[in-house]
Design a protein around this nucleic acid. Sequence first.
DNA 1: TGCTGATTAGTCAATATTGACTAAGGAGCC
DNA 2: GGCTCCTTAGTCAATATTGACTAATCAGCA
Lengths: 170, 170
Amino acid sequence: MDRELLLLGVLRQQGMHGYQVHEFIDQYLASCTDLKKPTAYFLLDKLAKAGWITAEQVQEGHRPPRRVYRLTEQGEAAYQRLLRENLAAYVPAYFISDIGVAFLDDVPGDEARARLAQRRAALAAELETAQAAPVHPGSLQWLVEHRARHLQAELDWLDEILKRLAGRAA
Amino acid sequence: MDRELLLLGVLRQQGMHGYQVHEFIDQYLASCTDLKKPTAYFLLDKLAKAGWITAEQVQEGHRPPRRVYRLTEQGEAAYQRLLRENLAAYVPAYFISDIGVAFLDDVPGDEARARLAQRRAALAAELETAQAAPVHPGSLQWLVEHRARHLQAELDWLDEILKRLAGRAA
DNA sequence: TGCTGATTAGTCAATATTGACTAAGGAGCC
DNA sequence: GGCTCCTTAGTCAATATTGACTAATCAGCA
């Protein structure tokens, strides 16, 4: 239900059409989710069917009509409930993209170090862009900090592994 | 391709049937992914269709036959390639389940603190079980450490937020 | 032996996700 | 105007994921 909470929270601040919702999340909440455009539309449809948001058709020129979504009263209630549930519960995140480390022994030490060094560089670059990115005012910025902390933890871990690999090769 | 790499890496060490693969990952790689049983079977089918693994039908009693999967030569080549790609690339992880923090302002300070305290407790419990869990020898244990670091980062961040909320309410 | 509940093994229909597409509008330029 | 390229806006078929199910075997025990 986290995606649903996200969309409700965004639409609650301001009515938006699908593309706008996607853009907003892509800009300010990229650390939380990589919500693809078709998924955004899919979820908006779902929320509309659940009666949590309504769509107002807006015709402009020869385009297909845009639907501007807004929370309904039930949507507001659902938002309040989901938000509270979310704050109270811890749900683990997964790190499948680090799986290669489980199989490090299958790569010669030199090559392993070289490849991990590449990874480290990409990660460090990500950390820098994350810290340079534009920040939306309010508690949204706490999420940016959140991301930075995780990236830093990942960086420290990588360094530790590189150190161990160096020790092992000697 | 990370899931595929994971399955190849597991099957490479030892031929297994679907249920066994799922069990193994569930036990030793729970920090990397929550691979559901049907997804495991789906991926095994896909790998078999790609010619990366072969299925040996094994009949036992009146059960439906179990298929024991093993890497083919192409599977071994794919494994080597995917592993190297994986080590060199950094792919960001997302934290959608922390989205509630973006909307903290919508909950009265007292309640927010109470709910987040619940979350903190769950997280701390998770960290403890993670550190007490059985460890598979070899570089797999580095992933356990990885998880611990991220959990710790999350814990520190939560504490920081709780502190700020306390300051704000005063 | 017969019963009950847990474990092993796998499937399937419903739901969710995504890459690749269409198509209008606008900006820059000749 | 006519051309090209970029941005905005949305759709759709193919692919992936999951909750809920079936069904055999096994373990304990009266």
